[in-house]
Design a protein around this nucleic acid. Structure first.
Lengths: 128, 128
DNA sequence: TGACATCCAATGCACGTACATGTAACTTGA
DNA sequence: TCAAGTTACATGTACGTGCATTGGATGTCA
């Protein structure tokens, strides 16, 4: 907890920028070219897959939003793209008809499982 | 150099995402509201100021591009915005008329010096 | 010199994101 | 019970970015 100079934090920020840009750029390219998925699309599939915290296969938009660095509107459109691609389904919630339950389709789970090794490989390459 | 599990790299990546998004989001907001500067605009001013590596006050677009995580086209437009705002000047290079020399105007240096404390404060807050 | 490749920067275009707003559904309190 | 406030999600709009292409300048080599 010693005080840090401006140079220190500046250098730390540069390093963060480097890692972030290099990694997310390659993630974007690899996921897009190998699996036709944008990075935030992959991240939605990842969460819906139950990989992070267990779920019964259904996740509300609000919960999804809380786990992602994406605005509500961007998330809405991302899910729309995934829905049009047949990878997720929107289902109305019986108890609160404002809310949507999202779930992976079979195709969605297959696509995610196919893309996961690619995602992990890039992370290993840049962070290991 | 021990092998890292998928969980390890995944957690590391989550942490990087958190730091990156929290920090750059607040940088963007603070610089915009207090100094009418976007983050990449500030970064251009920062480099032109000679803060990083010394320069004679003139920097070529290509050199700028090499120091930023921004495409050539995005950089070209960013500089156009700064030029329209009267913060930088484009000057043709005598020796290579393909190249542009960029330089801060007085207003550009003033804006950068005003914004620098804001930038540093946000970095300290998130990285210290 | 001339023909062709390479390089620098600008621009048309498509796309993803954030902000502001709209719409419908739920909640609260008198 | 109903009006006002709140919440969930979608959508209009503006904007910054990347990719592909263009135009002009420089380099290369025969």
């Amino acid at each position: 907890m010693e005080p840090e100079s401006d140079q220190d934090v500046c250098g730390q920020w540069s390093e963060t920028l480097r890692v972030y840009h290099d990694t997310s750029c390659e993630l974007e390219n690899e996921l897009q070219s190998l699996h036709r998925l944008g990075l935030s699309e992959f991240e939605v599939l990842q969460i819906l897959s139950g990989q992070c915290r267990s779920n019964d296969g259904k996740v509300k938009m609000k919960d999804l939003e809380a786990e992602m660095y994406l605005s509500q509107s961007a998330l809405s459109r991302t899910v729309t793209r995934l829905e049009k691609a047949g990878l997720v389904t929107r289902a109305a919630c019986d108890f609160d008809r404002r809310a949507n339950f999202l779930a992976l389709t079979d195709a969605g789970r297959e696509r995610w499982e196919a893309a996961r090794p690619t995602h992990n490989a890039v992370l290993r390459k840049h962070l290991a």
